[in-house]
Nucleic acid binder design. Structure first.
Length: 419
RNA sequence: GUGGCUAUAGCUCAGCAUGGCAGAGCACCAGAUUGUGGAUCUGGGUGUCGCGGGUUCAAGUCCCGCUAGCCACCCCA
């Protein structure tokens, strides 16, 4: 028999198997419950979008240049697998007329996102996010609200110890003037910066602040802080957000180096880390305000705020912190019939399914082997059937915990199983 | 996109330095058990040694290329 290489999964993707699924489900349930409690409704948007939608909002960034999962469809359209949810949700907000309903539109979404980079631990080409967006309001109260939702989700997922970092990056009014100050500060130091940062100095000076290269670190402390140079509206919003977060009982640290690289981000930015996290790579959820995004997409200027949280990493942290979800057995009842009684076994299973989950073992194996399988399945009961009993329309019901076994008429099985 | 490490049974891995019969544990199957379980004992190997090429009398082992995985960098919209 000729053999070929078995077909394996595509590079950088993975399966979530039944044994892991219960933990994922717990994280998803926590997300949906918290979102619902805050009046957010679920939205589902396509995982494919026009490449312009993604490129428009992330032009020039490495992320788009190198990591966008893009392709051409059969009609020659340039498409991308979405790398994040916000751009698509904002598009749907206008296309679906949510801009004409009560504002803000409070929305949440679960789903896979894609990035085309080299896989490593915790970074897959297909990964899963929980996304929250409040679109159509500039109120700082919503910044605090989405922060509270993020914390609520992580807490209810079983991650109580969190670190919240918070910052404001101003807006189109005050940021340009601040960026000039930042450039003025860094220009004399240019030669001491590493090459990427020398380039950033002119192209994207905010990025200088969250550079992680050791040689650039000494200069950060003396750099001007944007929170000291906010315009009046931004400054008031910054004060409000902090006050609201505090009154929600949420501890945070102001990290003046927390930034976003793209112009449409405004004011609030935040990230949640697990308590012990040191590096920048461990953010469980990150978000902020994006008052310039709708306009970037070509829609009417509309404010919005939200966050995205990664299930892959959250589930990892849950497992590491000992969160355990009792997995339900695949079937509560296993039906084991002698050879040739498949019909009768299926009938009995159908009867029992009125009250319990039931799986039939149709394999041609010894009874001992079938009992072994039933035990491993976690079945609480086993229904045994021989030809004699089938003729009488009875079966033996065995309680796997006690080992008690009684002969029962088929019709009485549901009653006995529901005790 | 860059660098390092790795690839042998369904899974985890040993064997490779110094080329010479394809191995272990777990899992799985069967039996002990005149049909009844997760424990125990006994038996069973289920394999293109990732793929392709090269060196050699001989390659799982040495060399080259490719693919994939892991780790880190870049980046994380």
């Amino acid at each position: 028999m000729p053999r070929t290489e078995p077909i394996r999964a595509v590079r950088g993707v993975r399966d979530i198997l039944p044994r892991d699924r219960s933990l994922w489900r717990a994280a998803e349930r926590a997300a949906a419950e918290v979102a619902t409690r805050f009046g957010y409704q679920e939205i589902v948007t396509p995982i494919i979008e026009r490449v312009e939608l993604i490129e428009r909002v992330g032009e020039d960034t490495d992320a788009i240049a190198k990591e966008l999962y893009r392709f051409e469809d059969r009609g020659g359209r340039q498409l991308a697998l979405r790398p994040e949810a916000t751009a698509g949700i904002v598009r749907a907000y206008f296309e679906g007329g949510l801009n004409q309903g009560p504002q803000p539109a409070r929305l949440y979404l679960f789903g896979p996102m894609f990035r085309y980079d080299r896989p490593q631990k915790g970074r897959y080409r297909q990964f899963y996010q929980f996304d929250i967006e409040a679109i159509g309001s500039a109120s700082p109260a919503l910044d605090a609200e989405v922060i509270e939702i993020a914390r609520g989700w992580l807490n209810e997922s079983g991650i109580p110890e969190l670190k919240l970092e918070l910052n404001s990056i101003g807006d189109g009014v005050c940021r340009p003037a601040y960026l000039d100050r930042l450039r003025d500060y860094y220009r004399p130091l240019e030669e001491k910066l590493h090459p990427d940062c020398q380039r950033r100095l002119e192209t994207n000076p905010l990025r200088l602040l969250d550079c992680k290269v050791p040689q650039c670190q000494p200069f950060k402390a003396g750099a001007p802080r944007i929170t000291d140079h906010l315009c009046e509206p931004c400054s008031q919003a910054w004060t409000q957000v902090r006050r609201l977060v505090e009154s929600a009982g949420i501890e945070y640290v102001h990290n003046p180096y927390l930034v976003r690289g793209l112009d449409y981000y405004t004011r609030t930015v935040f990230e949640f880390y697990p308590a012990g996290a040191s590096g920048q790579q461990d953010a469980l959820a990150s978000g902020g305000r994006y008052d310039g995004l709708a306009e970037t997409e070509g829609w009417p200027s509309t404010p919005g705020v939200g966050f995205a949280g990664g299930f892959d990493r959250v589930v990892e942290v849950m497992a590491a912190s000992g969160v355990e979800v009792v997995a339900a057995p695949a079937a509560e009842v296993a039906v084991l019939a002698d050879a040739g009684l498949d019909h009768e076994a299926a009938n009995i299973a159908r009867i029992c399914r009125a009250v319990r989950s039931v799986a039939v073992d149709y394999e041609a194996k010894s009874l001992a082997a079938k009992m072994r399988s039933a035990a491993k399945l976690g079945a609480r009961w086993v229904v045994l059937l021989s030809a004699d009993e089938a003729a009488r329309r009875t079966a033996r019901l065995r309680d796997m915990a006690s080992g008690e076994q009684v002969e029962v008429a088929w019709d009485e099985l549901p009653e006995r199983l529901s005790r």
